[in-house]
């Protein structure tokens, strides 16, 4: 109970509706995401969990036909206000995608890209430092430190995904969104990423979308269950998996549908 008091809401979603053309994808999502915790979003495919994730850093803006209503507050600031600068928002909210998507550049340039466009590093030394710490935080430094100038696309799938995580943390965001980061990886690489997520939560607030319930159980403190564009239930991971309030959640957890 002591823990509960220390918790601080980082992201608050208020009545978010999302439409693709005339098809509604999300219905009135209300939820809170706490600081320095891992929050998992689960649900069957097509339930809207990824769509919601992309609302948090406004990646849905890229899609022309996508319309969003409602509010998302980060640190009590509504990011859907008309004059919000998405570039600034995304500097604060990083993202890792389902399929590793390193740029067709060297490992070094992949990491340096974010800091260089935001002008974070003053000189080459500082940039080297940022690249090194980012790769270290992503637990990739030891594997790639001798070949920083080789193309990032030459790495294995798991390494590529850690490279993408390193790229996301290179600009020191406050929140990292992960969209099924392990779905394209083998079990060993998955284990490494999960370990990494656990260590990252001390510095970042992490939201992870996953289709694997065991993964959600392993890495997250809180879990939200989405179904057909609605948030069915949200709570402590332990509670959701052991004793959910909603029967639908119960059915999904026990594998009766999904």
């Amino acid at each position: 109970m002591e823990l509960e008091n220390k918790r601080e809401a980082k992201v608050i979603s208020k009545n978010i509706d999302v439409f693709y053309g005339d098809k509604q994808a999300l219905f009135g999502i209300d939820l809170e995401i706490y600081k320095n915790e891992v929050t998992a979003l689960i649900g069957p495919s097509g339930c809207g969990k990824s769509t919601f994730l992309r609302c948090i850093n406004r990646m849905n803006d890229v899609i022309d036909i996508c319309k969003i209503t409602g509010e998302i507050e980060i640190d009590n600031f509504n990011i859907y206000k008309p004059d919000v600068d998405v570039v600034r928002l995304r500097e604060k909210v990083g993202m890792v995608f389902q399929k590793p998507n390193p740029f067709p550049k060297s490992i070094y340039d992949n990491i340096a890209y974010g800091p260089s466009i935001h002008g974070i590093a003053k000189d080459k030394n500082e940039m080297d430092q940022i690249v090194e710490t980012s790769l270290q935080k992503a637990a990739l430094w030891n594997e790639v430190k001798d070949r920083l100038h080789e193309p990032g696309t030459g790495l294995s799938g798991g390494q590529q995904q850690r490279l993408c995580i390193a790229r996301a943390i290179s600009i020191n965001p406050e929140i990292i969104l992960m969209d099924e980061p392990c779905s394209a990886l083998d079990p060993i690489a998955t284990a490494k990423i999960e370990e990494l997520i656990d260590s990252l939560k001390t510095s970042f607030t992490i939201v992870i979308v996953t289709h694997s319930m065991s993964q959600a159980a392993r890495v997250s403190q809180r879990t939200g269950f989405f179904h057909l564009g609605k948030l069915i239930e949200m709570g402590e991971t332990e509670k959701i998996f052991k004793n959910p309030n909603n029967t639908m959640t119960q059915d999904y957890i026990t594998g009766r549908f999904g």
């Binding site: 600068d85 570039v87 600034r88 466009i117 935001h118 002008g119």
Partner: peptide, 12 residues
């Protein structure tokens, strides 16, 4: 502030 200026330039 420096960052603010930089962002302005980027938008330009």
């Amino acid at each position: 502030m420096n960052k603010e200026l930089r962002r302005k330039k980027r938008y330009q």
